[in-house]
Amino acid sequence: MRLIVSNIIAIFRKELQSYFASPLAYLVAAVFWLISGFFFVSILLGPDGIIQQVAQKEQMGVPSPPVDVAYRLLQFFLGVMGALVLFLLPILSMGLYAEERKRGTLELLATSPVTNWAVALGKLLGVVVFFTAMVIPLLIYEAIALSAANPPIDPGVPLLAHAGLILLAAAILSLGMFVSSLTDSSILAAILTFALVLFLWVTDLIASRVGGPLGEALAHLSLLSSYNNLVQGVLDTSSLVLFASYIFLGLFLTAQSIDSLRFTRR
């Protein structure tokens, strides 16, 4: 058991190091920070931003229920972030196994005393931690903005929302890792992952069209609705279970696909 843990840590460290050494990962992070910063500023202060809207309504004297700017900001912003990671995460996960397959290093991993599970888990942890590092700067400027809120907001809400973002990312990355294990082309892996995640993102739209028990089942698979629950500050067990299931499914399928690779490959 101790050995398995140290194996997982070895893989995790290697994976994390390779992200911090990869220009592509920095590019993804830079795009992520740039776009998120842009949206944050425009949602908060832009001409159609929340503060402007509230000010306009007050000027025109429209009677409206008071708006909680801080919560609205969080919801809007994290909603946008959820959509943004949809595009960026497949780029982070595309190389997880495809590169190992292409470089032949999978042969090293497969002939080392490590189980496929440990490799997959270590890799997933590595990329999730890298993504978490990408999220941290967001927390800093959000904290600065939200500290001006009156009345002060409950810190649990933004923390839960960001935990939701990271869980969402972990689910997407886990599935992306599985897709990556199917091919030795990184680009193909990225495209397939994007298609798969996009499908899971909009299943509740599809579900409402389908209707009936099938539609209901589909609606439960939606990443978006589960994510929105967490962003709104609702600690919903079914959402957590859904994300955990996706993560587990990705790990399981990855381990299986690497195992079967040894039986089919020349």
Partner: peptide, 13 residues
């Protein structure tokens, strides 16, 4: 210890 036909190296390490 196993040396495969293609060197199994991580180029960024």
């Amino acid at each position: 210890g196993y040396l495969p036909e293609n060197p199994p190296l991580y180029l960024d390490m």
